[in-house]
Structure formats: structure tokens, C-alpha cells
Amino acid sequence: MILSSTKELKDKGFEQILDFFRKKSLWMLHYCTGCGAVELPPTMTSRWDMERFGMGPMATPRQADLLLITGYLSVKSLKRVIYTYEQMQEPKWVIAFGSCPINGGIYYDSYSVINRLALYLPVDLSIEGCMPRPEAIIDGFTKLMKAIEKGEAVGYKKYKENYEWYKKNQREVLERTTPVL
């Protein structure tokens, strides 16, 4: 009993050290369906210079830690996002840009655009705005870094624990067999 608890304590301390390195080196994969993709290049390049925080764009989901959903998601692209998310290696985080992944935004009554991303993927951080300016994006990133350091950004653990719930929601949208109305 004592042994296991000390081991836990040690693991926790070790994780804390690793979390420090993880927050300093967030590699991101941006899923550019929406208008948020336009705000990313100035954030990356010399005007706002995201690389100061050790962040950089990555080419494939295997290499990335951070998935950026930059805007609205149609049902068809939701399927691809889920594939992408599940290909990423833990620890991994999701950031949703703008109001569309929060409540549908201007697509609240669209028949093909999902309203709330958090039903299908564990969103660690939402940056509101339509679209968020680079200042807001950088602000969001620093907030995520703080959350990672404190060990609060645990979306990927939530996804594993509530896997059935997430899968049920995803199936409702993607593999429906009966009409809705």
C-alpha cells in the first residue's frame, strides 16, 4: 500500500517535470476547414511569431501534440477529424477556434454543420470570436500552457474514460440508419 502510494507520488512528480517540457514544445496540426486558417499564418510568422513559445506547425498527426479545429465542421469533415484525432499520440490536446465549434455560430441552423464539437471530441480550450484575432489565439495558447503545467488539460484522458459516450454521439451523426425528422 505504502509502496504503491510512493510510486504514485513519484510518477506524479515525474509527470510534472515532463509537463514542463510538454508545454514548452507544443507541435500543432491545424485542421483548416474554416476561416480560422487565415488567422494562423500571421500568428506563425514574424508579426506575432508563435515560435517564441516553442510552437510550430507539423505535417502529420503522428508528430503533433495539438489539434487546432479552425472553424466550422461539416459532418463529412467531422469523420476525418475523428480519424486524425485518434491517430495522434498521447498526450494530445484539442483547441477549437471561433464560435462555430462551440454552438454552431452562424451555421446554427445548417443541416450539414455540427453545432457543438465537445460532444464528439474532448475540447481542452475554446477560443471565442468570429474569427479570433492572433492576439486572442496567442492568449489561448498561453492559457493552455498554464493548464498543461497544472495538469488540468486532460482531455485525452477524458476521451479514454468516456469513450463509449463519445462513440455513441459520433455514431448518432455518422452512422445513422433512420431519418431524423
Binding site: 454552431g104 451523426v173 425528422l181
Partner: peptide, 15 residues
């Protein structure tokens, strides 16, 4: 005659 808002609310959940 297709009600998009009703569909969206039922399918993707109301906010």
C-alpha cells in the same frame, strides 16, 4: 418543406 433549424437542433443538439 425541409425544416433546417428543426433538423439541426434534433440532430446536432440545441446549444
Amino acid at each position: 418543406d425541409f425544416d433546417s433549424l428543426k433538423y439541426s437542433n434534433k440532430m446536432f443538439g440545441k446549444f
